[in-house]
Design a protein around this nucleic acid. Structure first.
Length: 581
DNA sequence: TCAGTTCGCGCG
DNA sequence: AAAGCGCGCGAACTGA
């Protein structure tokens, strides 16, 4: 067991201030009374440096002198090693501690270093077992940090901090030798922004939300009662209020819904939106879609959302998994703010707190730009360099219309073509995608024709696809060097898409990291990120300036790995999330 | 009864 | 030859 000192029991911590400040690398870990930085509290701060005992500070007991010493050490420019930094950063901030220097996050490092044979879980115990070959038992320290501490708890807390030093010793060289150093520094710097997003949270206009909930309940009920009229094979009875109910019919059961469809002459294989698409004008199908929509809105968003409002802050603090998707994108849960419906009726419920404004920005066509860069497609690069409208250009190329005479409808169709085809969509898929997403009717012949012309016009994209098709890679990289081990059976679409999606993630993560610096002194906070969109809350008087900083930072966030294609972002000041384009 | 899987669908 | 991809979540369904 490594030696440790526990303060204040073992004397005064502040006497060690200078020798710790002289260190260039320190490991920091915390123990808390729970998992919620808004309602639970920080109990222990453990600080480990090479060649010294681990310093364990009991925040319940230590005095202001020791607090000041910790504050200064955390703020120093030395490298700070954390395991899952965003967690500790939130608790530290809630207790008034800010951190300086670069972050090294062992959890993010482990995720970047992940290989097919490596660990699938990234807790400290799993990764120390894998990278150090040591077995760490966490049993003693999982809970009970709010009363008197047992010696074993202090011992394990100290051990966790010293393990971080050892882990970096192994992982830092591994990141370099695996070509992951650049993406690691992007991820590490981004962790600060994610901590800020989670602790900031978002404010929900609950009154407006409740009205929307009531309205949607009514819509759902009406669609339901219309659907019961098709249920001849079920026993239809008037309910207490006189409207009809099909006894035993569960509209959420796809099995039963399939029967209902068949009974009414709609012979589909399954009840998915795609399968029902040819019948979308049938009254039964229309009612079903309306029911499903309303029921999804209710069960998926409207009803659960109020329970996510944190009683301590009155705001919704979602959880972000920084490397949540295999592509390198973030994911979000509890609640997932990345899937809030786009309808203005939903998004207008997300508002700034009094005296503040929202500042919202998103990247313009970032995945297409990334694809242009990866494929080095000359036509696309040229268009983006000249500030052209790529959707219009595609519309012109596939229809033969001069760019200036492209109609709105043509541009809309081209949008579907652009997004669909660079990711290996077939003519069939393109046709359905254009219909579903852009409300564009396209015959199969047209889809085939567009597909053909698209690949003839964009030679670089065509060559990029052909190269992958000819020799499917086992390993590939995003533009910032994020590494992908492709499954044996991974389809072409995945091989095309993963590095594109991941490179876009590299860029926005770089922007988030930069923002923690460029927003300093404005009073603005990052409150959400949705793949290619960043939301801030800013003091109203600064909002216009902040919008400029946000746009500028996002456009400068190429990190040097987008040499041929410029980035473009659009930012605006808003009084709710609905006010966006 | 309950954990795990599948479907369908919200977002990008 | 043909093929969009990536998530999280609720409800239904499956299997022991």
């Amino acid at each position: 067991m490594n030696p440790y000192l526990y303060f204040p029991r073992d004397g005064s911590f502040s006497g060690f201030r200078e020798e710790i400040l002289a260190e260039s690398v320190i490991a920091v870990d915390t123990e808390t009374t729970g998992l919620d930085p808004n309602s639970d509290s920080l109990r222990l701060i453990q600080i480990a440096v090479f060649g010294k005992p681990v310093f364990v500070l009991d925040m319940l007991l230590c005095d202001d002198t020791d607090r000041d010493a910790v504050a200064q050490i955390l703020l120093s420019p030395s490298i700070k090693i954390f395991q899952n930094a965003k967690f500790d950063l939130q608790f530290l901030r809630a207790s008034g501690f800010e951190t300086g220097g670069k972050i090294f996050d062992t959890m993010l490092a482990a995720q970047l270093l992940k290989t097919p044979g490596g660990p699938a879980r990234f807790g400290l115990d799993s990764i120390s077992a894998f990278f150090l070959g040591t077995v760490v038992s966490k049993e003693e320290q999982t809970s009970g940090f709010d009363g008197d501490l047992r010696e074993a708890q202090i011992e394990y807390a100290a051990r966790d901090a010293s393990v971080l030093l050892e882990l970096r010793g192994v992982m830092a060289p591994a990141l370099v030798s695996n070509g992951l150093a650049d993406i690691a520094s992007i991820e590490f710097q981004c962790a600060r922004a994610i901590a800020e997003i989670e602790s900031s949270g978002m404010l929900l206009d609950i009154d407006r939300w409740n009205i929307l909930t009531d309205d949607t309940r009514e819509t759902c009920r009406q669609a339901e009662s219309r659907l019961f009229k098709y249920a001849g094979n079920w026993i239809v009875q008037p309910d207490f209020f006189g409207s009809e109910t099909a006894v035993g019919l569960n509209l959420n059961s796809n099995k039963q819904v399939l029967d209902l469809l068949h009974d009414n002459g709609i012979n589909v294989a399954d009840t998915s939106k795609a399968a029902l698409s040819p019948y979308r004008n049938e009254p039964l199908v229309k009612d079903l879609q309306e029911y499903r929509k309303a029921s999804k809105m209710l069960g998926g968003f409207l009803e659960p959302m109020p329970s996510f409002i944190n009683p301590a802050t009155g705001r919704i603090h979602a959880n972000y998994s920084q490397i949540g998707a295999s592509s390198g994108r973030m994911s979000c849960w509890g609640p997932n703010m990345q899937q809030i419906p786009r309808d203005a009726s939903f998004r207008e419920c997300f508002i700034p707190s009094p005296g503040n404004s929202l500042v919202i920005a998103d990247y313009s066509q970032i995945e297409l730009r990334v694809a242009a860069q990866i494929a080095r497609d000359e036509m696309m690069i040229e268009a983006y360099r000249n500030g052209g409208d790529l959707h219009k250009l595609t519309a012109s190329l596939i229809t033969g219309t001069p760019v200036d005479s492209v109609t709105k409808k043509q541009r809309q169709a081209a949008k579907a073509v652009n997004f669909g085809l660079i990711f290996a969509m077939g003519a069939r898929g393109l046709q359905a995608y254009a219909q579903d997403t852009y409300d564009v009717e396209m015959s199969l012949e047209e889809a085939e024709e567009f597909r053909d012309r698209f690949f003839r016009a964009y030679k670089g994209i065509n060559d990029w696809h052909n190269a992958i098709k000819k020799n499917p890679p086992r390993v590939s990289r995003s533009l910032a060097g994020r590494r992908y081990f492709h499954r044996e059976d991974e389809g072409l679409a995945g091989l095309y898409n993963t590095p594109v999606q991941g490179s876009a993630a590299d860029i926005i993560k770089n922007a988030l990291g930069m923002l923690t610096a460029t927003l300093k002194g404005t009073g603005a906070r990052i409150i959400a990120v949705v793949h290619d969109e960043i939301l801030l809350e800013s003091p109203a008087e600064n909002a216009l300036k902040v919008a400029g900083i946000l746009k500028e930072t996002m456009e400068q966030a190429d990190g040097g790995f987008m040499p041929d294609v410029p980035l473009a972002a659009e930012a605006q000041v808003a009084s709710s999330w609905a006010e966006k384009q």
